[in-house]
Amino acid sequence: MNEIVIKSPTTLKELVQILAVADNNTYMLSGGTDFIIKMRREKINNGTIINLKDLKELNYITNTEDYVKIGGITTLTEISCSSIVDKYATALKEATGKVGSTQIRNAATLAGNIANSAPCADTVTALMALSAKVKIINGSGEIYEKKVDDIVLGSEKNSLKRDEVIIEVNIPIDLEARSSFGKIGSRTAVTISKLNMAVTFKYNHEMVINEAMVVIGAIGPKAFNSSTVANSLLNKKINTQFIYLFEETLQKQVDEAILGRASHPYKREAIRGLADDIMKRMFPQIMTGGELS
């Protein structure tokens, strides 16, 4: 008879010991909100499940001068309510607050969301726009960093080896940058993104953009960093004209990405809404939204 074994390490040391013998039938279980559905649907009934939830030492949100550090089992609710995240990684606060329902956010973890690597994962889009890295531990006890972008392969695939676990997410702090996230689904709340986007802007006192990062999610197997859109915004002054340019280049980007797909006509229009939402949130004094169009 097939057998599932659950191991619940309580320290990193125990985790490493378990990881050392991980094989192809080893599964990482964090909040469980995606995994348990998958496990039942795909009828996974043998192997080892490593329950990460008892690694209490991985439940934290702190910051140094350079980084916001989020422990691997920290829940999305905890992140969305964190003043540290709000201050230094606004896009992540906004994204975590919009994932699933209250119950889902209470269980789901940021590390789990990254590892799950769904094309529409809201947090991944935000983390990419924040140039976030993850800290990984492996079965040899080695700890190293990788970019979120490198972990997420998309279409629910990640690049983690079978003995690797995300133990921390690191978001660089840049006091001159501001970020924001937006999503569009079928409902106001509890909805899978049809489209999501996160941006990080740096601008001078004259409101001229000198650095930009624009990440668009749910229009491909994974969120992608659009340098085309970002570059088009460089050296532009953030004013009422700016949004038209932003929307226009986003539309071109969507055309480039998914032209010919059934979802294209909708997404090329709807992305304007995302741009408008984000700009309104970031620059309420300038952007009065659609009233201009």
Binding site: I6, S8, L29, G32, T33, I36, I37, I49, N51, K53, T75, T77, T102, Q103, I104, N106, A107
Partner: peptide
């Protein structure tokens, strides 16, 4: 929905082992 360590969660997507 039940309450686990003070927060509401869906008990259909939590393994019992995780709630022990």
């Amino acid at each position: 929905t039940i309450i686990l360590d003070g927060v509401a969660i869906n008990s259909c997507i939590v393994l019992a082992a995780q709630a022990a």
